Amino acid sequence: MALQSIAGLFFFSFLAWLISENRGQVRLKSVGIGIAIQLALGVILLKLPAFRDFFLVLNDVVLSLEEATRAGTTFVFGYLGGGPLPFDEIFPGSGFIFAFRAMPLILLMSALSALLFYWKILPIVVRRFSWCLQKTMGLGGAEGLGVSANIFVGMVEAPLFIRPYLSQMTRSEIFTLMTCGMATIAGTVMVLYASILKGTLPGVMGHILTASVISAPAAITISKIMVPETRELTSGQLS
Rank of each mutant, 00 (worst) to 15 (best):
G78I: 10
V61G: 02
P123L: 05
L46W: 06
L115F: 13
L105A: 05
L112N: 02
S94I: 06
T74H: 00
L108Q: 04
R127G: 03
M155L: 06
P92N: 07
R127D: 08
R128F: 13
M103T: 13
L41I: 11
S64A: 15
I121G: 07
T69Y: 03
G140N: 01
R52T: 10
E143Q: 11
E89M: 07
G141N: 08
L58G: 14
P123S: 05
K120F: 09
G154T: 05
E157P: 04
I106E: 05
F100V: 04
F152Y: 12
G146V: 08
L112A: 11
A114M: 12
L112K: 01
L108P: 03
P86L: 11
V43L: 14
T73R: 03
S113E: 07
F51M: 15
G144A: 15
T74F: 00
V126K: 04
G81M: 05
F54D: 00
V61H: 04
G72L: 14
I90S: 09
E157Q: 12
L108G: 04
A158I: 05
N150T: 10
G81P: 07
L112C: 08
T73N: 08
G141F: 01
F87D: 01
L116V: 02
G146K: 08
T136V: 05
K135A: 14
I124M: 09
D60Q: 14
G154E: 06
S94A: 15
F54K: 00
I97W: 03
V153G: 06
I44F: 11
D60A: 15
A111L: 14
F129A: 07
F55Q: 00
M155P: 00
P92S: 08
F77E: 02
G95M: 01
F54N: 01
V61C: 07
G95H: 10
G42W: 09
D53P: 00
G95R: 12
V153W: 06
A50Q: 13
L116Y: 10
I44P: 03
E67C: 00
G81C: 10
R101F: 02
I124C: 04
V76Y: 11
D60V: 03
A68N: 07
